[in-house]
Measured scan of single mutants.
Amino acid sequence: AVSDRLIGRKGVVMEAISPQNSALVKVDGETWRATSGTVLDVGEEVSVKAIEGVKLVVEKLE
């Protein structure tokens, strides 16, 4: 799938994300809905860990 190429890519949080709420991230110039197990604020850099349906699963870039 096209989205599989995004695993391992870096992105930027466009809307705050919490474990209860998905929000938008920008990866390679494209906007995607994403979820995370932690709270992520706007502007934080993230890494794509997986794809669940049409959502990216991201975590904060260390």
Rank of each mutant, 00 (worst) to 15 (best):
A16V: 14
V57R: 07
D4S: 13
E30M: 10
E62F: 12
A23T: 08
K49T: 12
Q20P: 14
T38C: 13
L40W: 04
I17V: 11
S22P: 09
A34W: 04
L56R: 00
D41I: 15
V27C: 04
K10Y: 09
I7Y: 04
N21E: 09
A50V: 03
K10E: 05
K55T: 15
S22V: 12
D4M: 11
V58W: 00
G11P: 03
T35C: 14
R9G: 04
T31R: 06
G37T: 14
A34E: 02
T31F: 14
S22M: 12
G37L: 14
D4K: 13
I51F: 06
P19A: 12
G53D: 05
K26D: 07
V27L: 06
D28H: 04
E52F: 10
G11A: 07
A23D: 02
S36M: 05
L6V: 05
V39H: 13
E44W: 09
E44Y: 06
V13C: 05
E59V: 11
E62R: 11
G53W: 04
R9V: 05
V25N: 00
V54S: 14
V13Q: 00
D41C: 15
K10L: 10
I17L: 13
K49C: 11
D41M: 15
A1S: 11
L6E: 00
T31V: 14
V25F: 01
A23M: 15
E30I: 10
V39L: 11
D28S: 05
G43K: 02
E52V: 12
K55N: 13
V39M: 12
N21Y: 11
K55L: 15
I7S: 03
S47Q: 14
G37K: 13
L24A: 05
V2L: 13
V48Q: 00
G29T: 04
G29Y: 04
D4Y: 07
I51R: 05
V2S: 10
L56W: 00
S36N: 04
R5D: 07
A50K: 07
G37V: 13
E15Q: 12
A34D: 01
E45N: 07
V25D: 01
V27Y: 01
G11Q: 02
